[in-house]
Design a protein around this nucleic acid. Structure first.
Length: 588
RNA sequence: GGGGGUGUAGCUCAGCUGGUUAGAGCGCCUGCCUGUCACGCAGGAGGCCGAGGGUUCGAGUCCCUUCACUCCCGCCA
């Protein structure tokens, strides 16, 4: 007898005897008749137990929620008036002739498909949570996405190569997860932060088109969109350039949207320079659905005798911006106070603003706590600069470049969401022309992308100011989220050593940490480049989920533990001594 | 490392300015019920109020410490 899934039972099977198995979603016992909703991943179908068969009926009385059962029965029309239009299978039911209880179940601690359960409960009982429609849909979507991605790259003759999980620690970047070596006491493997050096080494090895769905590990603090272990789609090609990679990836996303998202319209990919992104949006991942943009007004306020502005007028590392919010006068004083409070976490000291009630009457039509510092000419020039209309609110921020950018980009995001300013749809954006280096917290140069990124022109390395050297890096942004990034790489040993040198990595350290790679570069490395995408984050975005955890079967909590298995856990002394490890006794 | 939020029954939550015996809905158990699908009706069980300490005649409620979960800043080449 053929086996079916619940949702496959339709009128086509009327009067046929079928076999079905699944979980008991609900039992409704009317004394003389028992209904059971049987559930599998496809959905629900109603079973009917009639009292004529006493043994069968008795057994049906004993079943409870989440029992695993197998039934045989006849697919029947529902009686007049008992059709349930809320169920796809609501026109039929199964009159059960035999029941096997394959397994009992304790009363579950959470209800399947109850979307109002706390996440720690869901993670502790992930196997129950996973029975829900939502998790089933997400995990199957993810699988389909990966299938489409793999097929795309196979069809283009890319080679899928697995790279090591036990590898070498790297000096830059995130904290490594370390694995002690038993065979080599006092030495450690590191889990890969990404397969970067391996994929470049594959290029040197003549694997001219490579891709991998790769697990990556970074021991840093978590966020709703960051897990310590995550999945990357990793891609690398030899003899390539930016344009070929961009075309390849746009083609991939066209396929993903067609086959996985059932999205028929053409996708819209725009491009923007890193400089323009920072200038207009204060960040390198603007959401193009959001119409709000920043306007620099330093020139307009240079004569203004107002300390908040004048402190920054002559500082080249400072920015003074205006942000016009159309219809923003609807924000209450309390709303504005809350927004002011929320930008403070980025180091901003406050938010000044104009309320534009009547822009033709600057005397009375513009209200602002800072109006007394500004003359009519300055106010007028600001209104012109942002092309203000009646009903607009204009926020001002003056501070160091970093603080203005981070606080105002957050404000743009917040206002866009709160005032419903976002347009519909999917906005892809390539960010190009990144500089090679930026200053780190200690004022030292650090790679914006990573130290294997090629400069646009190698002669710049000698001639230009280190922070003005353009790189060949690119990022792909989708609706304000970074989904991937890559670069054309350095393929010359000399250039690579020069970059390390600029990063203050000593010859000795270079040799110790990257010696193998520098050697490899010297044996005929083809020009190459690539890109990597965060698969978990992509699934989250495409499905509109709030957290990356919902896209991962067994995710970690914010403190990097697994509530299902209770990992991490302490280990036996014996295990430790085999690894030559002593636990430092905590002073506390 | 820092800031915010949450923690009370199996689950989701209420519990005011400290005051008798800590509540609700759902779930669970028992009984009744032949057309329900949020089944219904009757009855019942279930709590170390996250943990530890303190203030008080008295603490779920106030104070301190700590743990867990969560959002954010730092961090994430």
């Amino acid at each position: 007898m053929k086996k079916y899934h619940c949702q496959e039972i339709t009128e086509n099977l009327l009067n046929k005897e079928i076999r079905l198995s699944g979980w008991v979603s609900k039992r409704r016992d009317h004394g003389g008749i028992i209904f059971v909703d049987l559930r599998d991943y496809t959905g629900i179908v109603q079973l009917v137990f009639n009292p004529e068969d006493k043994e069968l009926f008795l057994k049906a009385e004993s079943i409870r929620s989440e029992f695993v059962i197998e039934v045989k029965g006849i697919v029947s029309d529902r009686l007049e008036g008992t059709i349930n239009n809320d169920l796809i299978t609501g026109k039929i039911e199964i009159i059960v002739s035999s029941l096997r209880i394959l397994n009992k179940a304790e009363t579950p601690p959470l209800k399947i498909n109850d979307d109002n359960v706390n996440e720690d409960q869901r993670l502790q009982y992930r196997y129950l949570d996973m029975r829900s429609d939502k998790m089933q849909k997400t995990m199957r979507f993810r699988s389909k996405l990966i299938q489409v991605i793999r097929n795309f790259f196979y069809s283009k003759e890319f080679v899928d190569v697995e790279t090591p999980i036990l590898t070498k620690t790297t000096p830059e970047g995130a904290r490594d997860y370390l694995v002690p070596s038993r065979v080599h006491p006092k030495e450690f493997f590191a889990l890969p932060q990404s397969p970067q050096l391996f994929k470049q080494t594959l290029m040197i090895g003549g694997m001219d088109k490579y891709f991998q769905i790769a697990k990556c590990f970074r021991d840093e603090d978590l966020r709703s969109d960051r897990q310590p272990e995550f999945t990357q789609l990793d891609v690398e090609l030899s003899f390539t350039d930016e344009e070929e990679i961009i075309q390849l990836i746009e083609e991939l996303f066209a396929l993903i949207f067609k086959d996985v998202m059932n999205h028929s319209d053409n996708l819209n990919f725009q491009r923007m320079s890193f400089t323009d992104a920072l200038k207009n949006y204060g960040c390198d991942k603007p959401d193009l659905r959001n119409p709000l943009i920043l306007k620099d007004i330093k020139k307009l306020v240079k004569e203004v005798d107002f300390k908040v502005f004048s402190d920054h007028v002559d500082n080249t590392n400072s920015r003074i911006v205006a942000l016009k919010v159309p219809g923003g006068t609807s924000l209450s004083r309390k709303d504005i106070d809350n927004l002011t409070e929320s930008v403070k976490q980025f180091g901003s000291k406050g938010l000044a603003y104009f309320k534009c009630e009547d822009i033709s009457d600057i005397e009375n039509g513009i209200t602002s706590p800072i109006k007394k510092f500004l003359n009519t000419t300055v106010i007028k020039s600001i209104l012109d600069e942002v092309t203000a209309s009646n009903g607009d609110l204009i926020f001002f921020s003056a501070d160091s470049m970093d603080i203005v950018n981070s606080s105002m980009s957050a404000l743009i995001k917040e206002l866009g969401a709160r005032l419903n300013l976002l347009s519909e749809g999917w906005k892809f954006l390539w960010i190009l022309d990144y500089p090679l280096f930026e200053k780190d917290g200690e004022g030292k140069p650090t790679s914006i992308h990573h130290p294997f990124t090629s400069p646009m022109d190698t002669s710049d390395l000698k001639e230009k100011n280190i922070y003005d050297i353009p790189s060949r890096a690119y990022d792909l942004i989708l609706n304000g989220n970074e989904i991937g990034g890559g670069s054309i790489r350095i393929h010359s040993k000399e250039v690579q050593m020069k970059i390390f040198e600029l990063l203050n990595i000593s010859a000795e350290e270079m040799n110790k940490k990257f010696g193998f790679f520098l050697d490899a570069l010297s044996f005929g490395c083809p020009p190459h480049g690539g890109i990597a995408f965060g698969v978990d984050r992509l699934v989250m975005l495409l499905l509109g989920l709030d957290s990356i955890r919902d896209t991962i079967a067994f995710p970690k909590t914010q403190s990097s533990s697994c509530l299902l298995t209770d990992a991490p856990s302490s280990v036996d002394e014996k295990q430790l001594s085999e690894l030559s490890i002593n636990i430092i006794k905590s002073v506390k």
